[in-house]
Design a protein around this nucleic acid. Structure first.
Lengths: 233, 233
DNA sequence: TGTGACGCAAAAGTAGTACTTTTAATTCCT
DNA sequence: AGGAATTAAAAGTACTACTTTTGCGTCACA
């Protein structure tokens, strides 16, 4: 019971990556390729390819005559979507959610400001549509539907910013929002104030009011951070 | 003339990664593993491992009966330090520097604010020291020395924020600052106003004044963005 | 003429083996 | 005790044989 596994490589990679990010192998732990090959009942070829990938994520380091050493958390490529997914699925999920939310609180306001300057008419339309979708699904325990609109909304903002680094955080935001909805709460309807703020952000972007878009998004971020403080000390 | 190359794998990876990120193979280009093996004069084993790594960076996608397809820029893992380095060494270096500087302008102020709350006495000391180092080397064409202090300063701020996502941007900031110093200018001494701001940030952090640290860092960021606008349209 | 089933072949995926290279650790000599 | 030579363990590389998936062309049928 690890992962679907279409292909030996994916399966072994998912299993090992998850185990390492979950802290099952403390930093400094040494693995040997042929031991792993035996354990997973695959050829050393497969293991080597997996190790190379883990190495590129800086989860492990492979040295001759030593083996494959698990690296400490600080050296991990924490922006790798794969690593993020593994960590969100593992033990330090709360810590991870917090880090990512703080990151969001820094990035999204600036992205919203830029979006107000750069959004295409199509993106403005899409933004408004998603905001309205949020309003429509914000009452009556329709959390799953609400989540879809919420994610789409933030994705559009990040894309419309015109900055590729911001755009690539769309997946991260999606994970965070999904995590928030699925993990705790699930009963409570979303905060009406937050919903309103989203509508206003869409407005501000449509009206090319960068300062307002940024400030409103900052308020959304503050809300997300507070929510986090309420749920976890 | 590609890269030092200690190990076939590193060499091929560096060559291919650089070529792809430089746009030498337009998206959609299909490579075949044994053709690559022949071209680089290495075994298919090595090529496969390289392809797996490139695949984990979402630079390429490998499919049976098709080959290794180069993916469009939007799907690349643009936060991967390796990818960042390749892109900074290649053709779209200016575009890349701009993206990263915008990212900095979003992240660093928030990081500085958090640093003011979380910095250890040791980190405060280090911060002050680096700021003073910047002052000391800010006049008389001592740009290389100045750069060292500048990088160290920003690294400490990011680390002191206590957020691992921020901390991991230390390398990115280092690349951006180095790029700035090395690429253009090189004659001009650093802007005295910026130097003063750094000293003041160190002060603010030492005094636990989060709002001030954030605001001052925002001013540094604004300066960096303006500098970019002056140098590249 | 269009459409769907069928089968071929190309390319990646996997396995296994043999060999090379690096290097930590041990031994041995001074 | 300290340093040089030796050893062996583990990753790195190569090659070869085989399996599996799958895009594409062919052909039959409606």
């Amino acid at each position: 019971m690890t992962t679907p596994a279409q292909g030996l490589h994916s399966h072994v990679l998912a299993t090992l990556g998850l185990a390492i990010t979950a802290g099952e192998y403390p930093p400094g732990t040494v693995l040997r390729t042929d031991e792993l090959a035996q354990r997973f009942d695959v050829s050393r070829t497969v293991i080597r390819e997996v190790v190379r990938v883990l190495e590129s994520m800086h989860l492990v380091e492979s040295r001759r005559r030593v083996g494959v050493t698990v690296l400490p958390t600080v050296s991990w490529n924490v922006y790798d979507p794969q690593v993020i997914r593994w960590r969100l699925a593992g033990a330090d999920r709360p810590r991870q959610l917090r880090s990512l939310t703080v990151l969001r609180s820094a990035v999204e306001p600036v992205a919203a400001g830029l979006a107000a300057l750069n959004a295409t008419p199509e993106q403005c339309r899409e933004l408004t549509e998603q905001a309205l979708g949020m309003v429509a699904t914000s009452r009556g325990r329709r959390l799953e539907e609400y989540l879809v609109h919420d994610v789409a909304f933030h994705r559009v903002v990040l894309n419309a910013s015109g900055n590729e680094m911001f755009a690539r955080l769309g997946d991260v935001v999606a994970e965070v929002l999904a995590g928030r909805t699925h993990h705790h709460v699930m009963f409570e309807d979303p905060d009406p104030a937050a919903v309103t703020l989203h509508v206003q952000v869409a407005e501000a972007v449509r009206e090319r009011d960068a300062a307002r878009a940024e400030e409103l998004t900052r308020q959304i971020a503050v809300g997300a951070l507070q929510e986090l403080d309420v749920l976890a000390p």
